[in-house]
């Protein structure tokens, strides 16, 4: 702007008459004064001591527990978690005791969803398959949070060359599709020979962290120049401790939202890998494996494929709904000022 002559920096425009007198009207203007009783004067800037103290998290919780979206998704997630921890409460039949006598049989008493081609109880398999899927989802999310969170926080907070290197590294991983990357990793001999929940987790974490890193970096960037961070540095806090004590806690909200949504997508990714035969080993019961096993039978016996797929969808949907509800409650713009 400096080369442009604007009315604001034009010295000639800075004419300053000595004093201004204010305007007086030729009309009569009544001087109205409201009676004092109508609006009693309050003390200037008094603290409201009546309302209960409320932290941001408590505020978010109060907001959340009224949201139907949150209530439904939370109930579903609790159900899924309980099923994963104690499946025997929900299914009395052993999902591994299969007899070919029952092969592809329909539903009957005690076996509400019928049998697979191998003669296993579909309902029991869906219930027992929950654990593997949920474990992959949870541990992948934790891993992604740790790696992506650290990378993103360091990149955003320190900036400069560290940011450049970490951001490019993230972009390289970001450019590879999650599933494709996981397929490649799971094909490596070390992974192929020791397939378990953990190999799937490692493969997904390796390609899933850049998303969290980006979100964290953005949130940290937003907060690192906040006055309260500068104030704490002026109090003598080292920059790193300011990051840990002030910047990261204030950056958590968007990270939590994205993490809960991606938990759902990791479960889908696991199912996809297992379906392709590259995820969990056949010995581990999982929805992906069951869907894969049912796929050749889909026209004769669609129920066998349908039920694990429904379980998968409900679980993923509830995590995504939880993420949406959290986003509404934690949105920094909606925070009352």
């Amino acid at each position: 702007m400096s080369e442009n002559l604007t009315p604001e920096n034009d010295p000639a425009a800075r004419v300053t008459p000595a004093s201004r007198q204010g305007k007086t009207s030729t009309r009569f203007i009544e001087h109205f004064v409201a009676p004092l009783e109508e609006t009693p004067l309050a003390a200037v800037d008094k603290v409201d001591e009546e309302a209960a103290p409320l932290s941001l998290w408590a505020d978010a919780w109060r907001n959340l527990r009224k949201q139907p979206l949150f209530i439904i998704s939370a109930l579903l997630i609790i159900l899924v978690v309980v099923v994963a921890v104690v499946p025997q409460w929900f299914a009395s039949v052993d999902p591994t005791s299969c007899t070919l006598d029952d092969s592809a049989e329909g539903a009957r008493a005690g076996h509400p969803l019928g049998f697979t081609l191998q003669g296993c109880d579909v309902y029991a398999r869906v219930i027992y398959g929950t654990r593997a899927s949920l474990m992959v989802g949870i541990f992948t999310t934790l891993g992604v949070l740790v790696i992506g969170g650290i990378m993103g926080a360091l990149a955003g907070y320190y900036g400069g060359w560290l940011d450049t290197i970490l951001a490019r590294l993230g972009d390289i991983f970001f450019a590879l599709p999650l599933i494709l990357g996981a397929i490649v990793i799971n094909q490596l001999p070390a992974f192929r020979d020791n397939r378990s929940v953990w190999t799937v987790v490692v493969a997904l974490v390796a390609f899933g962290w850049p998303q969290i890193a980006r979100i964290t970096r953005g949130a940290v960037l937003e907060n690192r120049n906040a006055d309260f961070v500068t104030a704490s540095k002026a109090l003598g806090l080292t920059p790193f401790r300011a990051l840990v004590k002030h910047v990261i806690p204030n950056s958590l909200a968007p990270i939590i939202v994205v993490a809960s949504i991606s938990l759902g997508t990791f479960i889908v990714a696991e199912a996809t890998l297992s379906f392709l035969g590259l995820g969990l080993p056949q010995s581990v019961m999982s929805w992906g494996n069951d869907i894969a096993a049912a796929q050749p039978q889909v026209r004769n016996n669609p129920g066998v494929l349908l039920w694990p797929a429904v379980a998968l969808s409900i679980t993923v949907l509830s995590f995504i709904m939880l993420g949406d509800a959290l986003r509404d409650a934690l949105d920094p713009k909606a925070r009352k000022r």
Binding site: T24, V33, A34, T39
Partner: peptide, 16 residues
């Protein structure tokens, strides 16, 4: 205006 009510109005200089 104070707390949503007009408490006083009149000629500017007079008010001041």
């Amino acid at each position: 205006m104070y707390k949503g009510q007009v408490v006083e109005s009149g000629p500017a200089l007079e008010i001041l």
